[in-house]
Simulated assay, not measured.
Amino acid sequence: MTDAKQLYDYHSWANERIFHHIEKLPEETAYQEVKSVFSSVSDVLLHMCRADYFWLNILSGSAYQEIIDSAGKFESAKGNMAAIKQHAAELVPQYHDFFSRQTDLEQTFSMQHPKLGTLESTYTDTIQHVVNHGTYHRGNVTAMLRQLGHSGVPTDYVFYLYEKNESKG
């Protein structure tokens, strides 16, 4: 089984590819309204960033309401790709710091949700969720870009593995 740290590295690699690709497109592309799950590409990326922040804080043991209260800092990034990219970039070393403090990613921890109740999960399973969530929404971004007349960028896990393998050689 692939370890959680590598899956997270894939996730951050894929997000970087998306941001880099969008930077090469006409600037308005990120903000154009699209009839989709989100109204614009930038809205999807902001949602992904917020979710990554949320899950990092859950993994770190923060209380649900505390996380919700602190997530307001992302509101100023709405409609600002540079700010969204900056927030996303800031999360990467924070996740790496989380990993460096863990001795057992298979350890079970509890998370509390006001409506869903208590969930016992492992750190690894929660990281897998973060990665799956990102993969799903990167697919949304690709579909939206195609609706706007632009190509997407490959972010499949196998492309990450090929690139990682090439960098070793």
Rank of each mutant, 00 (worst) to 15 (best):
F109Q: 03
L119K: 14
H11S: 08
S62P: 08
S100H: 05
I22F: 03
H47T: 04
V37Q: 15
Y10A: 02
H133I: 00
S40V: 02
Y123C: 12
R101Y: 02
S60E: 12
I18P: 00
V34K: 02
T2V: 12
G61S: 04
Q32H: 10
D69L: 10
A143L: 06
N165C: 11
T118S: 15
F109A: 03
Q128G: 15
E120I: 11
E27W: 10
V34C: 05
L59N: 02
Y123Q: 10
A88K: 11
Y64I: 07
D156V: 01
A82R: 10
T124L: 06
E166K: 15
T124F: 04
L116M: 13
K24R: 14
E16F: 07
R146C: 06
V44D: 02
Y8D: 04
L116E: 15
G134D: 00
Y95H: 03
Y123H: 15
V44P: 07
E90Q: 15
N15G: 13
N80E: 11
N80Q: 14
M1K: 13
G72Q: 02
V44G: 04
M144L: 02
F99S: 06
P154K: 01
A30K: 04
Y95W: 10
W13P: 05
H11D: 12
F54D: 05
Y162D: 10
E66T: 12
P154N: 09
A51I: 13
T124P: 08
